[in-house]
């Protein structure tokens, strides 16, 4: 298998898994436009074993999708020999480099801020009610931060491939 084919596979995976990840974020954004604190009564009433399995699968899917997106993105930059210039925002590679940095922030936000708090909100990890309410606010802000960050990210990703004249 030649590297050009691997590069194409990475691009394909990058798009598919980005849709899985960010699509999930957008669905949450549309479903919950405003913050509502965690409500034990309604949340625990609706909770069933089947729902728990579904939530685990859903959250695992987009969390691991983010890793595929990040690795394939970095892989494509490496294959082209652009990685160092992109990450140091050097010259024309600063455009895709800004996208790469925003994407990296989004992935770190998801894994290091959102997920540890979300586990408690969803009851995957036991926590007292007060803590779950506090975590629901942090989770909401972290999730919407990723929504906000995805807007410039997509701008730079598209511009890196098709709109470099915008920067000249």
């Amino acid at each position: 298998m030649d590297m050009a084919f691997v590069d194409h596979l990475m691009r394909w995976f990058h798009l598919i898994f980005a849709l899985v990840w960010v699509g999930h974020n957008y669905a949450s954004f549309v479903q919950h436009p405003r913050y509502k604190p965690f409500n034990e009564e309604t949340s625990e009433q609706a909770r069933t074993a089947a729902l728990e399995v579904r939530m685990q699968r859903e959250h695992g899917t987009f969390r691991y999708a983010s890793i595929v997106v990040w690795c394939s993105g970095m892989g494509m930059l490496w294959y082209r020999g652009w990685l160092a210039d992109a990450l140091t925002l050097n010259g024309a590679h600063a455009v895709i480099g800004m996208g790469a940095w925003i994407g990296t922030l989004m992935m770190l936000n998801l894994w290091l801020i959102m997920w540890p708090h979300q586990k408690k909100v969803l009851g995957f990890e036991p926590a007292p009610l007060e803590e779950r309410v506090r975590c629901s606010r942090i989770t909401f802000l972290a999730s919407r931060t990723n929504t906000i960050l995805s807007i410039p990210l997509l701008f730079f990703m598209a511009a890196g491939g098709h709109g470099l004249q915008l920067f000249m």
Binding site: P33, N90, V95, M98, T147, I148, L149, P152, F167
Partner: peptide, 30 residues
């Protein structure tokens, strides 16, 4: 404290404003 995240419009506006600011930053680097 109310943050842009607290409304749909605020989220979209923050994303658009951030895009514009970062665009101007990156333009100086290219």
């Amino acid at each position: 404290m109310k943050l842009p995240h607290d409304s749909m419009q605020g989220t979209l506006l923050a994303g658009t404003a951030l895009t514009l600011v970062l665009y101007l930053v990156v333009r100086t680097l290219v």
